[in-house]
Amino acid sequence: MNPIVLTPRDLAVAAILLLVDAALSVALRLGLTRALGIAAVRMVLQLLFIGYVLQRVFAIASPWLTLGVLLLMTAVAAREVAARPERKLRRYGNEAVGLIAVGFATAIASILALTTALRPAPWYDARYAIPLAGIVLGNVLNAASLALDHLLGGVVREKPAIEAQLCLGATIGQAMAPLRRAAVRRGMLPVINQMSAAGLVTLPGIMTGQILAGLDPIQAVKYQILLMFLLSGGSGLSAVAIVYLAGHRLTDARHRLRLDRLA
């Protein structure tokens, strides 16, 4: 089965839809024409750019180059995790906990899949490692940022409740436990929703892409199931990691709540 090759003309025809949107924006005075145009151009340029980069990286096939690309992707993801929450840990705390949590969870999920299920030769082949790490990163980023946002917001809101427990002799671990659990749950919700809706409400993007590209639906489904397991596993790991790392920064050895470490 050969994939249907898309020509620039095919893409241009699809772009007509966007022009319809733009016309609607003008007609209904939505004021979106400019934003829509810029976003569309950005999307095309960014994707073409990454397409060429991937082509080069696959061709060069250097493990060091692959590692460099992966680290860059992780750093960008960590920055996103850090930027999302309304509150920030001082001294680049959000960036630090984001980098560790996202890097750790993505590495475990990706290496597991590359060395067991997918097994390309070599296992770190860029053609597999980069797209796989990319999709895991995207989900892990989401889980980590939601968990971090819930923790940092909750710790301010629930300061009186946490300190009331400390004053009655609770350890900081006991006093923080309910908030920690709530934050991890918050981080895990999207991937749980995604799993329960998969196939019924939504056809996941990867699977749709593979079917359109000519792959047998059952094969595409198997890939999707593998991915879902990796994504939920990675999300759980990153949510737990970021909640404990950020929680550690917000407390100290004398069992105090250290909100002075929030910016």
């Binding site: 409740a161 946490i162 427990q165 400390l166 004053c167 009655l168 609770a170 900081i172 050895a253 069992h255």
Partner: peptide, 21 residues
Amino acid sequence: FTAPAWRRAVAYAAAEPGWWT
């Protein structure tokens, strides 16, 4: 003292009490 043991012995009640459940 460990911090929890100290706070059991030297008990602080805040002006605005907190409730955790």
